[in-house]
Nucleic acid binder design. Sequence first.
RNA 1: GGCGGGGUAGCCAAGUGGGAAGGCCGCGGUCUGCAAAACCGCUAUCGAGCGGGUUCGAUUCCCGCCCCCGCCU
Length: 296
Amino acid sequence: MSAFCIAGPTATGKSEIAAQVARLIGAEIVNADAFQIYDGLDLLTAKPSEAMRAMVPHHLLGSVPLTEEMNAEKFRVAALGAIREIQAGGKIALVVGGSGLYLKALTHGLASLPKADRLLREKLTGATNEELIAQLSELDPVGAGEIDRKNKRRLVRAVEVCLLTGRPFSAQRTGWNGAETIAGIFLFRERAELYERINRRVEQMFASGVVEEVRRTGEVRSTAEKTLGLREILALIAGEMTEPECVAKIQQATRRYAKRQLTWFQRQVSFWPVNLSRHDSSAAIELIVQRAKVFA
RNA sequence: GGCGGGGUAGCCAAGUGGGAAGGCCGCGGUCUGCAAAACCGCUAUCGAGCGGGUUCGAUUCCCGCCCCCGCCU
């Protein structure tokens, strides 16, 4: 995989910077945002503006129906395809997004494990954590010792993989601990500034008509259903909360999300950190362009 | 002015004569196929409106004061 990435928490300003960088180095952008990849909810997911899209081709933006389930592997395959396509056209691929696991899957690969089996997963989800732990202890004693026993989602996946492959889950993970090379840039800002931007962005979303957008959006299922703010806006439409409450809720949820992203990316050694609170965007863009050129 | 209820962390809120549940917020973190997800940890200490008193010991009992809510005049 030889694409350069720009990662960072929401509302940091990735899209704008990426578009500028792409324009300067003649790159095309591959979206690495788990929700902007869906077709619809453009306002709610803060997709790059028309202007940016007109300036630089964006791939994997709105390419999946809102009813389709997504996951890291699907993204990886799709992204790889987009990258190849871009490179075949003689251009540079610039991967941009804030979905940590998706990016990690792309830069470090994923073990070739079976995908989720609907029925099996449903059945396992119906079990209690204790039952799952007991089952995992049988199938994968090592994994059972390492796993977060309170996190059902992880327990289910672990048991699922054991059952589907007949081998312990813990023995099948790909080595992510090997030498990691710089895969890209981690853009971030000081907390106070980031939070202000988030708050402002949510307000702008409402001013631009997110509520209408959600109201006229058709069926949304599985993964897309988790879009931050969707539940809140639906509650607003149902009259279960006032608009100011709704705005505040979404701002809060977004701040928390941003914190999780910060925690994730700070640990990733393969990204070179760039603090946008300390560099103005033109300086940052210049810096990133240099890095990207070195990378290419 | 009278009667009743109440004043416990940023917010909501329980309980007890032996030295402060829980929730929210906030903060920190985990992360190998639902990831804008899921999960975990931390967060009142010359403390409990203020001042006295009783007691070996009071946040918990008594007295006074202040403030809030409801009702009454």
